[in-house]
Design a protein around this nucleic acid. Structure first.
Lengths: 225, 225
DNA sequence: TGTTTTAGACAAGCCAGACTGTTTTTCGCG
DNA sequence: CGCGAAAAACAGTCTGGCTTGTCTAAAACA
């Protein structure tokens, strides 16, 4: 199976548990994973600035010394978490997409609902925290945005593979994807404020109809000028 | 002119400069405004957690003592900034909407582009910082969300007044508004990552076409179940 | 034994809020 | 009109708490 350069498999995080490995290495990798999971939880629940090395260690039930052994600085911890969080979210998202029946995927646009669910995961919450923090924190900026752009490329690539029937639409497809993601992310962002599940469902349903109409050519997507 | 309970005028922030007032009160109000502007700048440029009282004071060219005189705690400062930032952004947005020609407003959906520009203001950047921080900071949460919900009501009310020709669509109009805002906010959120002005324009143009089709009844908006 | 992992203490730095002192404005009252 | 006290605005210091990264030492493992 030929893989594009931006495939998900090209960026599996390093240093995580593998079956084949000495006892020590396995133990070490396990600790690292526990720490990364704890970091995601802290980011999602307490925000970026309150995700201190102390808090992460306690959340991971590890000593601070142990943590700083695996991730010498907070930066290193955050960098590893960025990769881990994105990879984990993307992997389950893709897997779920692949498990859809053809009619669910094509006619009922179930992908939207999966994306919406993916945006509710702790991994995305953590990702959003990092994203917003990166806008104003120069150090984090350098760590976050290059990775975020790579992940975006992976996302587009995997989506294209998962929805082959859209490809004949050409540029209309990526634009539809951007529209979808922007809308869903915006919807999630305002969720606590609008606070109306019924209306939210209607908007998502509306988006679904719009996508169908785009696919059927009943809404024309403009070309870049 | 009868005003609805949620009109913008109902929540003009207190304690800001007025022409009629004693010298002391005027001076005081001026200082407060300078401080609030500085806070917005700090939030937009450095983020919530780095917006310290010290930084704000220096940005406002005021002493820390002066600042703590007007806003005894950081909480108080933030609360005042929330109100000020929203009011300021909303006011210029509404004013710009009102200045549109009828054809720009109705046929060309210029409102979308104004909203998009509004989302690029420092006031919105600050607002986003506060919003995201409020999700994880319990104290800020109590201060932010009640206000944010009030502002949302104001926004809906003012939009309804500014686009009278949509009202006959009934519930389709607020849903279209939510779709628009979600999409534009999501677009702004991903701006640094997607980083492609041409594509962004296309998506906005697509959104514009969608809105036109909704208004003309060519896209049916589902009802809440 | 030698290396990896875990544990915990320490110093340096920063921030919020409390505090004291200073200057400017207001206003009552002769 | 003008003087003096009260109040408001402004300035800057101090302390306690928290965080980070470093460092030493012990424990687990190969």
């Amino acid at each position: 199976m030929p893989r594009s350069a931006a495939a998900l498999s090209t960026l599996a995080p390093q240093g995580l548990p593998r079956k084949d490995a000495g006892l020590q290495e396995r133990r070490s990798a396990e600790t690292r994973q526990v720490i990364l999971e704890a970091t995601i939880r802290c980011l999602a629940r307490h925000g970026y600035s309150k995700t201190t090395t102390t808090l992460v260690a306690s959340e991971a039930r590890a000593s601070r010394g142990a943590m700083l052994h695996h991730y010498p600085t907070r930066q290193a911890l955050i960098a590893a978490t960025i990769e881990y969080a994105f990879y984990k979210r993307m992997k389950t998202f893709i897997a779920t997409i692949r498990s859809l029946s053809e009619s669910d995927r094509i006619e009922r646009n179930k992908g939207i609902f999966l994306e919406l669910r993916s945006l509710q995961s702790e991994e995305y919450q953590a990702y959003l925290e990092l994203h917003v923090a990166a806008r104003t924190d120069p150090e984090l900026r350098d760590v976050f945005f290059p990775r975020a752009k790579r992940y975006d490329a992976v996302w587009r690539d995997e989506i294209a593979k998962a929805f082959p029937e859209w490809t004949e639409l050409g540029e209309a497809f990526p634009r539809a994807c951007e529209l979808t993601r922007a809308t869903l992310e915006g919807l999630m962002l305002n969720r606590d404020i609008w606070d109306d599940p019924a209306n939210e469902r209607v908007v998502v349903e509306l988006l679904s109809r719009i996508l169908t109409m785009i696919r059927e050519g009943r809404i024309e997507v403009p070309e870049a000028s």
